[in-house]
C-alpha cells in the first residue's frame, strides 16, 4: 500500500464528496435567501405606488389584471391595471383581502385542487391548469363558462361553478361536488385572481392567443 494513488484513495473521494455536497448546499441556501426576498408577498402600499412585485399583495383583487407581452423580457407578464370591482367592491382592505386569500389558499389545499388540476403547472393533469384561470377567455363576459352559469361577472360565475360543479357539466370529465360553501368559493376565486397576478416568467406561453381576449382589453 506504499504508493497509493490519490485517485484510488477512498478518503480523498470521501472528502471530495463532502466538500462538493457542502458547497452545493451552501449555494442553494444562499440562493434561497435571495429568492425568498424576491417572492415574498407585496403590500397594499406597493400596489398603490405601482411597485412591481413578483407576488403582489392580496389587495391585488381590487385591480384589473391582464397578461401582456413584455418586449423587454421577451415573454408575457401579468400587468396590474386600473381598479376593478371584485364581488361588487374595489375597496377590499389589506386585512379583508388577506383573510379572503387565506381562506382561499386553505380551500385550495383542503379541497385537493392539485390532485386534478395543476397550479403554477404542478399537480395532476386531469383538469385544466389554474395558473391563469382568472384570465381565461372562457370565463370572460362573452365566454362559454360565464354564460352557462347565468352570472354577470367573472367572479360570481366562478364562485357559482365551484359551489355546484355537477350542475354545470362542461365536459365528460366533470368536477365533483366538494361541498364548497359560498364563503369558501369567494376565497378560492380570490386565490385564483391573486395567482394570475404572479410573475411566472411567461408560463404559460401564448396564453389565450387563439381567442386574443387576454392581451390587454
Amino acid at each position: 500500500m506504499a504508493k497509493t494513488s490519490v485517485w484510488s484513495d477512498n478518503r480523498f473521494w470521501q472528502r471530495s464528496a463532502a466538500w462538493i455536497t457542502g458547497f452545493s448546499a451552501v449555494l442553494l441556501i444562499w440562493l434561497t435567501f435571495d429568492t425568498a426576498g424576491q417572492i415574498s408577498m407585496g403590500t397594499d402600499a406597493d400596489l398603490q405606488n405601482g411597485v412591481t412585485k413578483r407576488v403582489p399583495g392580496p389587495t391585488v383583487i381590487n385591480y384589473k389584471i391582464s397578461y401582456e407581452m413584455s418586449t423587454a423580457r421577451g415573454h408575457e407578464v401579468p400587468v396590474i391595471g386600473e381598479k376593478e370591482k371584485f364581488f361588487g367592491r374595489d375597496d377590499w382592505s389589506e386585512e379583508e383581502a388577506g383573510a379572503l386569500l387565506h381562506l382561499g389558499k386553505l380551500g385550495s389545499q383542503v379541497k385537493n385542487c392539485m390532485n386534478c388540476h395543476t397550479l403554477l403547472g404542478n399537480g395532476a393533469y386531469y383538469a385544466p391548469d389554474l395558473t391563469k384561470a382568472w384570465l381565461d377567455p372562457a370565463w370572460q363576459n362573452d365566454g362559454t363558462m360565464q354564460a352557462m352559469t347565468g352570472k354577470d361577472t367573472k367572479e360570481e360565475a366562478m364562485a357559482e361553478f365551484l359551489q355546484h360543479p355537477s350542475t354545470y357539466p362542461t365536459h365528460a370529465r366533470m368536477m365533483p361536488d366538494l361541498g364548497i360553501t359560498a364563503e369558501e368559493a369567494k376565497g378560492i376565486v380570490a386565490f385564483l385572481k391573486h395567482m394570475s397576478s404572479i410573475d411566472t416568467n411567461g408560463f404559460p406561453r401564448n396564453f389565450g392567443k387563439i381567442k386574443g381576449a387576454v392581451h390587454g382589453k
Binding site: G74, H75, N201, G202, R205, N206
Partner: peptide
C-alpha cells in the same frame, strides 16, 4: 439570457 424565450 436576453433572448431565452423570445421566439416560439
Amino acid at each position: 439570457e436576453e433572448v431565452v424565450m423570445r421566439q416560439d
